[in-house]
């Protein structure tokens, strides 16, 4: 459903994403993992159409994003890593606005707004300005705005930020159901436990390139470790074992 072909993005001299290629299939949840600064957010922002790649292609549903930006974006629901939205709109108005950007209005949208707000326990907050929402409530509102136009693809940067355990559970069930019904989900996360439980397949990105991609079994094969959990695999693949450095740092701090 999502095809990334030799995607490259530079910020001045710094290469954030370096000839990255990845295939995200329909009906599955794919996790994008990687250390800080590896290029996850930049990759997701290119998929969402917020940033243009310097070279390479983003294809969604078989359409080239550069040639048909509106058609590809209309298939997407995007959730950024930081929940910034219009502070002076109410929750209900924000969801109506997002649906409107996708050319949708009327009773179908109103019903969907009510259903989404009910799902997140936000019904009583529908007519409150967003500026009075807590961090977690904003995250739930943005998740709703990504779903309100019934997208075929969900791209989520750090889905669990600020969510309480109950909401986190709802989101996990929601994403699973969405994928089971044929939707495509691409999530970026640092929470490896979440990725291990939620994702059907994973891609580990390091220094702007895909280090390894596939199911847990594929990752284990790549790391030549048949028993290891995702955390050990991740550290081995990204060369991040730091036990020794932590010990010496704590010694130095006294």
């Amino acid at each position: 459903m999502i095809e990334l072909v030799s995607l490259t993005k530079r910020y001045g001299e710094f290469v954030a994403v370096d000839a990255l290629s990845l295939s995200v299939p329909e009906g599955r949840i794919t996790g994008l993992l990687g250390p800080n600064g590896a290029g996850k957010t930049t990759t997701l922002r290119m998929i969402a159409g917020i940033l243009e790649p310097d070279s390479g292609e983003v294809r969604i549903g078989g359409l080239d994003m550069a040639r048909e930006p509106l058609a590809t974006r209309s298939m997407l629901g995007f959730v950024p890593d930081r929940p910034f939205v219009y502070e002076k709109l109410t929750g209900g108005e924000l969801l109506r606005f997002t649906a409107g950007l996708h050319g949708m209005s009327g009773s179908v949208v109103e019903t969907r707004i009510d259903e989404l707000l009910e799902l997140w326990d936000l019904v009583s907050w529908k007519d409150q300005l967003v500026e009075s929402y807590s961090h977690g409530m904003r995250q739930k509102l943005i998740l709703s705005s990504a779903l309100v136009h019934a997208p075929r693809v969900l791209v989520i940067d750090e889905p669990m930020v600020g969510l309480d355990p109950r909401s986190a559970r709802i989101l996990k069930d929601l994403l699973r159901e969405f994928a089971d019904r044929g939707g495509t989900v691409l999530v970026s996360t640092h929470t490896l436990e979440l990725a291990e439980v939620l994702c059907d397949q994973m891609a580990i990105i390091d220094h702007g390139q895909i280090a390894v991609a596939g199911t847990m079994a594929d990752l284990r094969r790549a790391a030549e470790s048949s028993e290891a959990g995702l955390e050990q695999l991740f550290l081995r693949i990204t060369r991040g074992a730091t036990d020794l450095r932590i010990a010496s740092l704590l010694d130095a701090l006294g």
Binding site: R73, F78, P80, Y86, T98, L101, H102, G103, S145
Partner: peptide
């Protein structure tokens, strides 16, 4: 629009 530009940019709006 500032920090909310992502919403417009990721939507099918020119």
């Amino acid at each position: 629009e500032g920090r909310t530009l992502w919403l417009l940019r990721s939507s099918p709006v020119e």
